[in-house]
Design a protein around this nucleic acid. Structure first.
Lengths: 242, 242
DNA sequence: TCAGTTGTAGTCAAAATGACCCTAACTACG
DNA sequence: CGTAGTTAGGGTCATTTTGACTACAACTGA
């Protein structure tokens, strides 16, 4: 086939054996205020399966990979279809290819993960078959999707610790407190405001604007902007869409 | 959901369009003494293509994904076939799924990267169609394989900076100087021996043995051992083989 | 005007890092 | 046997980074 030194024996066996099916799944994270109005927490949308296997159970949004879509395009379309939104951040997570992920047939799933800015997340659709759930303490999902979510969570926390990803959860302009809330929600611990400010200010691409957030009950906080190219952040995928 | 017996809208459209082909490619790194006997450097084996497209050009070892192999198994088999060796480290790198990676047909490649211990690397086979090349300053390869190699290199350097991966380049027992050489080769800068020692000693799972490396021209260095589970290192893939 | 809250700045000790030095241990050679 | 040369392995010291904490300024609502 491609990229190989194998001789035609490989080609022959390929005609005898169907290649594994290829699907895309997407873990979409958004920050939402928790119901009891404590610290905001992580949520993700799931879709109800309308066919066997796992009919009626909740699963990650996804579908088969179409011939005309690049992997990234497929994931983006996915996100569009389930939430009606364009991603503020979208990156490949992992390719899951175990033999028995699906009971009936062999399926290789390429998982992506996305972040939604909180402003966008509020507009996200809900329906009979699309519902949002809290990311931790998730019920049992179809296929191996619990494992995929867990891995996505681990990656998110990991990247958060190294910085330069929290901004995707907030809008274009944001207060330091908003970014700090993101950290606290994802890392699940409180963060000292003063120290947090110090660190952020000395990271590149963070620029103060001369606008302030009005309407609060107290001193209006300054708005900041993230000036870096969102895709210059190389820590998880090769340069451009592949 | 491709190649299935289920009847559904999705299935019908899938019969009209062939699913993309699925292949595995493997970037195999080993540390070898450079020809002019300076600091050792990174090498990787490539195979010569014997068929179109890119006939005669060098490419990453790889092949189509067989129905009966998990992704990891396929990559391991790959490594076995081209080098005759079992991997000391093998991890998924990225799934490359651009539309025009191969001129003739759509191919999605799941790339893995592997590290060989230097002791193993010496036994690695070379042949007419399998040759080793220096990892940097590589010639032009078939398909998008240069890009894959570059990304693998970037990941390697990244992981190296966070530690816990250099040991896979050396044997089971090693001197501190050997590990330091790995760092210097991969990061391409010199490292202070004393500081390096201090850092390594306070990382977990590094144990001194009471053996010493004999036969050198000078004071025999102590041998150390890495006692951690090689697969407990979670930083790049979900828990177990998927 | 005052009380309450939050943004912003600074201080200080503890920990981590990088540059450098020193000496013990060993080999090779005269 | 003794000495020169090299490396392992241990330490010091200044600098930077980190976390905990304090203090004050700015603003709102009553």
């Amino acid at each position: 086939m491609v990229g190989t030194q194998f001789v035609s024996a490989a080609n022959i066996s390929e005609r005898l054996v169907q290649p594994p099916a290829l699907a895309i799944s997407t873990v979409i994270f958004a920050l939402r205020p928790s119901e009891n109005s404590g610290r905001p927490s992580l949520w993700l949308p799931l879709v109800r399966r309308i066919r066997e296997p796992f009919k009626g159970q909740w699963a990650l949004p996804g579908g088969p990979l179409m011939q005309a879509d690049s992997l990234l395009d497929a994931a983006a379309r996915n996100l569009q279809d389930t939430t009606g939104l364009a991603p503020s951040y979208l990156e490949q997570l992992y390719a899951f290819g175990g033999l028995h992920r699906s009971p009936s047939q062999r399926v290789v799933s390429i998982a992506y993960w996305a972040l939604l800015a909180s402003t966008e997340a509020e507009e996200a659709q809900e329906s009979e078959n699309v519902k949002w759930f809290r990311a931790d303490g998730l019920q049992e999902l179809a296929f191996d999707h619990n494992r995929i979510v867990d891995y996505a969570l681990w990656r998110l926390r990991n990247k958060m610790a190294y910085g330069s990803i929290a901004y995707h959860f907030v809008g274009e302009k944001f207060t330091l407190a908003q970014v700090r809330e993101v950290y606290e929600a994802v890392l699940n611990r409180s963060v000292d405001p003063a120290n947090f400010r110090r660190q952020l200010m000395q990271t590149p691409h963070i620029e103060p604007t001369d606008e302030f957030l009005q309407g609060g009950k107290h001193r209006p906080p300054r708005l900041y902007r993230y000036a870096g190219d969102p895709h210059s952040d190389h820590s998880g995928g090769p340069a451009s869409s592949l």
